[in-house]
């Protein structure tokens, strides 16, 4: 999946006819029932889920590693970043490979929908919603026509240390105690 022009308005955007401001082109994906968007410029590719190799002793939001054409890429349990229980992998599940500098990370998501341009003036900052600790994962909220709400995520945050401030109760698919980053 190539990186599109951020200002290209030719795709299927839900616009005000007279809007001539900037757009944010996003890859839309789903986690449980909510729709999320991530800046397409951060996305390298979207993969079907192959075998994810668990790494015992890894941080609890790390599902494991996959082989992407000979390079080992860490896959995160994206649900955990948004206070959701880990789900099961289905035919619709995808891994979104995001990049930052030379590093790559895989985000396991329930479904990838489409690439969409979202008008900047449709994106509200999260300040209005509250100051919950995991707001840091969220760049803003977009209200787009009939689609309702799209949560725009901050891809950089996935690369930050561990999400140890995070107090999810059970993480059924992960067997190591929360917060224990080290092996053994």
């Amino acid at each position: 999946m190539s990186v599109g022009n951020l200002f290209d308005t030719s795709s299927n955007s839900v616009d005000d006819q007279d809007y001539d401001g900037a757009y944010l082109r996003c890859v839309l994906f789903k986690l449980e029932t909510e729709k999320y968007g991530i800046n397409v410029q951060r996305v390298r590719e979207v993969l079907r889920v192959s075998e994810i190799r668990p790494v015992p002793g890894s941080p609890f939001d790390v599902l494991g590693v996959i082989n992407v054409r000979g390079v080992i890429v860490t896959v995160l349990d994206t649900r955990q970043f948004f206070k959701l229980y880990s789900g099961t992998i289905t035919d619709l599940s995808r891994i979104i490979i995001i990049e930052q500098q030379d590093q790559a990370l895989g985000l396991l998501v329930d479904e990838v929908e489409e690439v969409r341009d979202i008008q900047d003036n449709h994106i509200d900052s999260v300040g209005a919603i509250g100051d919950d600790s995991n707001n840091r994962m969220i760049h803003g909220i977009a209200h787009v026509g009939s689609d309702g709400v799209i949560i725009i995520v901050e891809s950089e945050k996935f690369f930050d240390g561990t999400t140890s401030g995070h107090s999810m109760g059970a993480a059924p698919s992960v067997t190591v105690d929360a917060g224990d980053d080290d092996l053994f």
Partner: peptide
């Protein structure tokens, strides 16, 4: 091969490798 982001320097592993059948071994 080095482990991916967030796992580099994980104690106990020298890295990972891909075995003949395409699977990953630590």
């Amino acid at each position: 091969k080095p482990l991916g982001a967030k796992l580099q320097g994980a104690k106990g592993y020298a890295g990972a490798t891909i075995t003949g059948d395409g699977r990953i071994a630590l």
